[in-house]
Amino acid sequence: MKVNLLKTDDSLLRRIMNESGQPVNLCFQCRKCSAGCPMIDEFDFPPNMVMRMIQLGRREELLASKAIWMCVSCETCGARCPNGIEIAPVMDCLRAECLEEGVIPADKTAVGLHTAFTDNVKVFGRLHEATMLMLFKLRDKKISKDDIELGVKLLLRGKIPLLPRRSKDLQKIRELFKDSGR
């Protein structure tokens, strides 16, 4: 019998636990996290399975998964976990590892949004919705009717100012970006 055997490796588990500060090894698969997850339909692996895959060291599959980008960090799971595992910071670690390792993210739109957002902050120190949304949608090349309608509504209500506002100490803010490698 030839099956796709996996060798267990706890180096991922140790690293994630250290970086996130979360006791991922304690997960005993009660699945309460998945039961309450608002995004579960968008996940390829439910949150409980993400915990299991970390325990078993299934790194490649995790970094290439949609789950890590679809998590909205609502922390519903963390608030209810019987072992006190906050999954949101764990997801953050996996996303960071995905980007650092140059793995192609399973959901480019989500990464595109986060990148456009932080790039915008890098420029102004604060968010300027108009330029951020424009750049994001241009890069993403996906604009829906809903998007346009919403944009118009917000513009009409004066909720998308045309001119940006800037932080004063922009130099320090850009140092922060440089320091974090973004």
Partner: peptide
């Protein structure tokens, strides 16, 4: 739990 074969 994850539906994978393992070799230890």
């Amino acid at each position: 739990l994850s539906g994978h074969a393992l070799e230890i």
